[in-house]
């Protein structure tokens, strides 16, 4: 089949458009990248988690187990937010996308950071007026650190299985909380202004963000 002899314009062809200004092109690129990663759906889920946190902080749970138990439901919600961000790192295009120019790493980094900020915002809003153990300082530390774990998981396991890392960390934290852990690597168990825990969480987030920026999520045919 050739195009010769087909004189009429094929139906449905868009008229030639005016070229984008660079700034608009950049925004358009960021938007398309975000849509390809299902960022709008992720934002919706993060907002829902914020609402869930708001509800959970107001319900009078019949809680036993002291402060450790008090924090565990909010921590589960925070970790769920981190898992959503990690899974959003998955890209559907594979090699054609990786074989493009220089923008992809920046887009990955921007998506990860923006979603982490959005998660913090949604959860902080959900915690407003409630008694969130550790307050917003601990919230930021927990979300950032566990998101970093999720991003590392995406690099290693692929985007679709990246949620397994935060889930495993949550279970480990649950066991650690039964004791009185002093290691900063279990940062949710540490006081909100614990510098070591903050550094660990920040370091893990930085490592995850860096690796996802440079390497992107592992692409597995299982995805």
């Amino acid at each position: 089949m050739t195009a010769a002899g087909i004189h009429s314009t094929p139906r449905g062809t868009a008229p030639a458009e005016v070229a984008y200004p660079p700034a608009v092109a950049g925004l358009r690129l960021a938007w398309l990248h975000a849509v390809s990663r299902r960022v709008p759906a992720a934002l919706g889920l993060l907002a829902a988690l914020g609402v869930l946190l708001w509800v959970s902080l107001r319900y009078h749970w019949n809680v036993a187990g002291g402060p450790a138990a008090q924090m565990f439901i909010p921590l589960t919600i925070e970790t769920g937010a981190a898992a959503v961000i990690a899974v959003a790192a998955y890209g559907p295009f594979g090699e054609p996308e990786r074989a493009t120019g220089r923008w992809l790493p920046y887009l990955r980094l921007a998506a990860a950071v923006a979603l982490t900020a959005a998660a913090f915002g949604a959860l902080a809003a959900g915690a407003t007026g409630g008694n969130l153990p550790g307050g917003s300082v601990a919230l930021l530390r927990n979300v950032a650190g566990i998101t970093g774990l999720g991003l590392l998981g995406a690099v290693v396991l692929g985007g679709m299985l990246a949620w397994a890392g935060p889930m495993a960390y949550l279970l480990v934290t649950e066991v650690a909380l039964q004791g009185n852990p002093t290691t900063p690597w279990v940062w949710p168990a540490r006081p909100p202004h614990d510098l070591g825990a903050a550094l660990c969480a920040a370091g893990v987030f930085a490592a995850g963000a860096l690796l996802i920026t440079l390497r992107g999520p592992r692409e597995s045919e299982r995805d």
């Binding site: 089949m1 050739t2 195009a3 010769a4 002899g5 087909i6 004189h7 009429s8």
Partner: peptide
């Protein structure tokens, strides 16, 4: 018909398509 194509079937294809489109237009 003078339709484009490197092989008889291609030319027939092009011609039939062109005819259909001109009728539609």
């Amino acid at each position: 018909s003078g339709a484009a194509g490197d092989a008889p079937l291609e030319r027939g294809y092009s011609a039939a398509l062109a005819a259909a489109r001109s009728v539609a237009a």
